[in-house]
Design a protein around this nucleic acid. Sequence first.
DNA 1: TATATATGAAACCTTTTGGTGTCACGTCAA
DNA 2: TTGACGTGACACCAAAAGGTTTCATATATA
Lengths: 109, 109
Amino acid sequence: MTDHLQPTFRALADPTRRAILHMLGERDMTIAQVSDQFDMTRAAVKKHLTVLKEGDLIAVRTKGRERINTLNAAGMKPVTDWLKFFDQFWDEKLADLKDAIENKDTPNA
Amino acid sequence: MTDHLQPTFRALADPTRRAILHMLGERDMTIAQVSDQFDMTRAAVKKHLTVLKEGDLIAVRTKGRERINTLNAAGMKPVTDWLKFFDQFWDEKLADLKDAIENKDTPNA
DNA sequence: TATATATGAAACCTTTTGGTGTCACGTCAA
DNA sequence: TTGACGTGACACCAAAAGGTTTCATATATA
């Protein structure tokens, strides 16, 4: 069983990378622009971007000598799907389900 | 800003730990029982369980000389909440619409 | 053309991570 | 009480992760 989830979970496991994703949610950015937001070298940021790319969480397009990094939020779907499996064990959701069943004929929403 | 998400994201970043969570979804297990499911020592599994505990993804209760490990699915909420922020970017059409609205009065170029 | 800019990539370093083996300790049963 | 059982904790190890510096290369621009 090859774990196709691994690159994405791995990419999300670092706080710097999660912060980068948030930034890219606001606007596309070059590597230099991303680097400006962190107290680390451009090379280090570049590595993070590579990991994000491997996790399919960003896309990169070339524009002249620049590399524009774009958020690929859809890449998070495998992770959210994996997490959804556990919804059934979540107390609140269980309570909601119980509610839904008990109030089968009088839904409150 | 201390990153309270980190222990949980960290815990989820390992395939063995994700597999353990799945197992605990089916039934509570002692350390020995979990270990039996993997080709690694009990000590290694114990470490994984410790990381899962730190991520608040499992609870442990003592029963005699045994330690019963229980899934705490609610511990995933911080992660799912973090991921929800990106829902707004999932749908390409939504993103396009967002662009159109944002550029109406304040062109960004 | 000459130079500045934006990036890629490699070598290197330190810390963390995932694993091992060993031993001590509390608990259960004969 | 005496073992066997289930676990915690530690020392140790190799590999991966996160960072740095340095240099090469492609693209803009004066």
